[in-house]
């Protein structure tokens, strides 16, 4: 054995041609499409993120559908129905995107109703007052938009395209919520109190939607290297709070953080300590409504079984009929 003519391949030998192509596309800020080769970790990470996101949209229909029958006017009822229908649509765009990665709809649904898949912890909080429809739109959808706008540029094509559609529709959600609160704040003392009480309950959970602090976010660095994620959790949370403060002033509500203050040096709003114990508790299934949300989803899926069977039977019949006619 001689080593004299061996070219130095040690650096390139570990990486395949496909992997190099993948890396080049990511490096060039281009997009990965379903038929492209991708590392198994990239695929897994996307399936996890996209399916969690889809589940959040589907579970997210529940806290609001709670108020459809009790909306204060026909106009508000129509708006709420349109919004809940949008959430269903967003779930479907996202399930479709996850399916292009080889995840099946059945597996994702089963994981959700078996309690094995995660969804945004925010939807495990209750909606006891009408003002909560305002807070969900303003704070929860507002935080979602902040998170989702950078995802429109996610490196996986189908995910980015789904996010573009979703973001367009979310801005209606946020504005209608803001308007609900604005009208309540222009109302009676009781209505103003209801709005403030609701903001007090939703503010912190909304900030937790951005995920754990950067130094405690295990998947973040890899996701950012793959350009799925473009900004860190803390960065997005800060951006959100900076937007909220002037909006709260327009509404005339106070944000329930006594330590919130403007930092002249950074020109940002510094926030107080977030109670991460609560976040981890809710994530672990011990939030106020976890069990109820999952039970309702499970019931809906099981109650829908006959519809899926009937549709499949009808499709089978139709195709048999057309085959007969063709022969």
């Amino acid at each position: 054995m001689t080593s004299t003519i061996t070219p130095d391949t040690s650096a390139t030998a570990v990486i395949s041609v496909e992997e190099q192509q993948f890396n080049d596309l990511i490096e060039a800020d281009s997009r990965i499409e379903p038929r492209d080769w991708m590392p198994e970790g990239y695929r897994k990470s996307l399936v996890r993120q996209i399916s969690q996101h889809a589940h959040s949209e589907i579970i997210g229909m529940q806290p609001e559908s709670n108020w459809i029958t009790r909306a204060p006017s026909l106009k508000r009822k129509a708006i709420l129905i349109a919004k809940v229908q949008d959430e269903a649509g967003h779930g479907l765009y996202l399930y479709s995107a996850a399916q292009t990665l080889g995840a099946t709809r059945d597996d994702m649904t089963d994981a959700l109703i078996a309690g094995k898949a995660r969804y945004s912890s925010i939807f495990n909080y209750p909606t006891p007052s009408w003002a909560d429809m305002g807070s969900i739109g303003w704070l929860v959808d507002g935080a979602a938009i902040c998170n989702q706008v950078p995802l429109c540029r996610a490196s996986y094509g189908p995910y980015g395209r789904a996010m573009v559609r979703i973001c367009k529709e979310e801005s209606f959600h946020q504005r209608q919520g803001f308007e609900i609160l604005l009208e309540l704040m222009a109302g009676t003392e009781e209505q103003r109190q209801m709005a403030q009480d609701s903001v007090n309950r939703w503010y912190w959970p909304a900030l937790m939607m951005f995920g754990p602090p950067d130094d405690d976010s295990p998947n973040s660095a890899q996701s950012m290297a793959w350009k799925i994620k473009r900004h860190s959790n803390d960065e997005l949370r800060q951006r959100f709070v900076n937007m909220l403060v002037p909006q709260a002033a327009v509404l005339g509500v106070t944000l329930p953080d006594p330590d919130l203050h403007f930092n002249e040096e950074t020109q940002q709003w510094d926030l107080g300590e977030i109670d991460w114990t609560e976040f981890h508790e809710v994530l672990a299934g011990r939030g106020p409504n976890n069990a109820q949300r999952l039970q309702r989803r499970r019931d809906a899926h099981e109650d829908g079984q006959w519809v899926r069977e009937a549709a499949a039977a009808y499709a089978r019949k139709q195709s048999e009929r057309s085959e007969k006619a063709a022969s």
Binding site: P34, Q99, T100, L101, G102, T104, D106, A312
Partner: peptide
């Protein structure tokens, strides 16, 4: 070649 999102494990075809 299989179409992304289409699989034998899906109960309904992809459109």
């Amino acid at each position: 070649m299989t179409t992304p999102g289409d699989s034998a494990a899906e109960i309904w075809p992809l459109w």
